[in-house]
Simulated assay, not measured.
Amino acid sequence: MAPAKTSSVRVRVDGQVLALSNLDKVLYPTTGFTKGEVIDYYTRIAPALLPRVADRPLTRKRWPDGVHKQPFFEKNAPRGTPEWVRTVTIPSPGSTRGTEDVEYVVVDKLPTLVWLANLAALELHVPQWKVGPRGGIRKPDLLVIDLDPGPPADLVQCCEVALLLRDLFEADDLRAWPKTSGSKGMQLYVPLVETPGEATSGYAKRLAEQLAGEHPKLVVATMTRAARPGKVFLDWSQNNPAKTTVAAYSLRGNETPTVSTPLTWDEVDGCRRAADLTFSPDEVLDRVESLGDLFADLGSAPQRLP
């Protein structure tokens, strides 16, 4: 992607006029990756990304001064949110502003995605449930298990554990979709018919504890940090309806721009180095062009927990 040549410009995106500012501002100093390139990436990946975040209240992690500076999480729609941006107000006691409600942004179209990219919202995090057209909260339609390696374990060990999890899912007639976190770990997703959150959490916890019992030198299911070094923590608690997980195709705020990337199971099986499954924005765009969207059928394959 060529660097942006202008620092500010007005553009029309699907009928909406946006003012894009400071396009030449470097957000990833190590590589010189600019805000203009962030916007370009999100614009080009939108056909694959939008279905992953549509109808899901969005939590953003923003780096307005670049990834070498302090970021902040943002749940509420920021001041100056355009009227055409879809928002949904959801009861959320103990929210970041101490109020009982949070007005979330819902990214259901390209202009909203570009608007957020212009705000340096590099990371997009969503829950495992959706809201209805009138803002009603639905039951989870995804089960996710987050694989978090404790150094010196890394993505290679995560892939080893992911294959063990795939076997457990298949034994229950469930199909799972893998992706990298874009950072040090990965996630497995199981699309479901709408299922109560306590059921998805309970099932994920049972699998995590089973694997921890069968492979104690490789897997840990407890949140105790002292137990994690050299092992892969299976974070089943991500299925708590109050939690979010980084969306597929989201950038990450690492030293260099990396992307949470859907994988094939052959890639998981063949991983020998963490670098094998670490992808830049350009590489992800090339993957989608050559492989298609590996999560394309995720939403059309609802399953039932045993």
Rank of each mutant, 00 (worst) to 15 (best):
H215L: 01
M186S: 12
T200R: 00
Q157G: 10
Q187N: 12
W177V: 07
A227M: 10
S183M: 09
V232D: 14
A153M: 05
A199M: 09
K217G: 07
L192N: 00
T200P: 00
L168Q: 14
S201N: 01
A204P: 05
A227D: 14
V220N: 05
L192H: 01
D167H: 05
C158L: 13
V161G: 06
L192T: 02
P149V: 11
S201I: 00
Y203R: 07
F233R: 00
W177I: 03
W177T: 08
R206M: 15
L211Q: 02
S237Q: 10
L165K: 06
L234P: 01
S201F: 04
E170D: 07
K205P: 09
L188A: 05
L165P: 08
A171N: 03
V220Q: 02
A171C: 01
V220I: 09
V156M: 10
T222N: 12
L147I: 11
A204V: 03
D172R: 07
R225D: 12
A212S: 12
C159Y: 10
E209I: 00
E160A: 14
L218R: 11
G185K: 05
T195I: 10
D235N: 11
L155Q: 15
D154H: 07
V161C: 13
T222W: 03
D148E: 12
Q157T: 13
K217I: 00
P191R: 02
V219L: 09
D235Q: 05
Y203Q: 07
P149K: 10
E198N: 09
R225V: 14
A204R: 06
Y203I: 07
G202Q: 11
M186T: 14
D154G: 15
D148Y: 13
Q210Y: 09
G213R: 03
T180Y: 02
R166T: 10
Q210N: 01
P241D: 00
L147G: 07
L218V: 08
V193H: 13
F233K: 00
D154N: 14
P152I: 00
A212R: 05
L168D: 11
P149G: 11
D235V: 07
V190N: 12
P196F: 02
K179D: 01
M223T: 11
V219R: 08
G182H: 02
A171Q: 09
K184R: 13
Y203G: 06
V156G: 09
L188V: 12
L188K: 11
V219G: 04
E209M: 04
G202A: 10
Q157L: 15
G150L: 10
P191W: 08
D235R: 02
E194I: 03
P149W: 12
A227R: 10
P191H: 05
A226I: 08
A221S: 15
L165W: 03
D167F: 01
Q210M: 12
D172C: 04
A176P: 03
L168M: 12
D167T: 13
P152Y: 00
G197I: 07
Y203D: 04
P152L: 00
Q238Y: 04
L207Y: 03
D173Y: 06
Q157K: 15
G230Y: 04
Y203S: 09
N239W: 11
